[in-house]
């Protein structure tokens, strides 16, 4: 029985020998249950062991295998060959990030922004262990839960033209996580984070293209988080006019 084959174009870049990236074509045996990530693993095991890509969990929770699949940001483990076969698949590293090597990008800028928004609970006042846990009702949890599903994969940054045009913009995931902590009833760090939100590079760098929310593999809605933060920032602006710091 002759095997079904699918053609996969991979954008290659080897910093020690290439001036700029180039496309290399591979032919991979096709099965309908094969993910893009598995196809890459097949290429590395059987066709070209020098190819580099990030991966870990294979189940859309680690956020490592983000890449452009036919120009659309996707997780390699969550995209399947059957949705493209018999057409060719073209794989490129995530857009809007510098390429480290092959499909691996430099995400330092995103990580820096993520750290800056203080994505952790800052309690209003420290509680002693003996005072017990911080309690929260299901209603209070519902206010932020959606935004807490982010896995930091960076697909939304690859989808954001405003980040592409000016990477000073804080960007979708960092702002969605900022909203997640600001909306948490146990958190008291809103004032610190609003300083980031209020800047030009904060929420005001967003023009509501909305593609970030479309590509998110975890159904987080960064565009909504940013719109809600714009409302908060406007309130903060009004308060700031009457009560300057």
């Amino acid at each position: 029985m002759s095997e079904l084959m699918i053609e996969i174009d991979v954008l290659r870049y080897r910093p020690e020998m290439d001036e700029k990236p180039f496309t290399q074509m591979f032919e991979v045996p096709y099965t309908p249950d094969m993910s893009i990530l598995e196809a890459l693993q097949y290429i590395k095991d059987h066709l070209d062991s020098t190819i580099s890509f990030r991966w870990s969990c294979r189940m859309a929770i680690c956020g490592s295998c983000g890449m452009m699949v036919n120009g659309v940001p996707k997780l390699g483990c969550k995209a399947f060959l059957r949705d493209y076969y018999p057409k060719k698949v073209s794989l490129e590293p995530l857009a809007n990030f510098p390429i480290e090597r092959d499909l691996v990008v430099v995400m330092d800028d995103f990580i820096k922004k993520l750290e800056e928004v203080k994505p952790y609970i800052i309690p209003e006042k420290e509680k002693c262990l003996s005072e017990g846990t911080y309690q929260q009702t299901p209603e209070q949890m519902a206010k932020f839960k959606q935004f807490s599903m982010c896995i930091n994969c960076g697909l939304c940054y690859a989808a954001c033209p405003q980040y592409a045009l000016d990477n000073k913009f804080t960007g979708p995931a960092a702002l969605a996580l900022l909203a997640r902590y600001n909306r948490d009833s146990r958190d008291g760090g809103e004032a610190q984070r609003m300083k980031i939100v209020n800047q030009e590079e904060g929420v005001w760098g967003c023009t509501f293209v909305g593609y970030c929310s479309v590509v998110c593999p975890k159904d987080v809605d960064p565009a909504a988080a940013i719109q809600l933060l714009k409302v908060e920032s406007s309130k903060d602006y009004l308060i700031g006019m009457f009560k300057p710091e």
């Binding site: 870049y13 033209p161 293209v209």
Partner: peptide, 28 residues
Amino acid sequence: TKRKPYKRELPTDWWLKHAFYTKYMIRE
């Protein structure tokens, strides 16, 4: 270091390359 990150340029007509972005530009 052998690191030499490659930066891709954003073409000025980026909004023509993808239907979603084109619709955004029509909206604007």
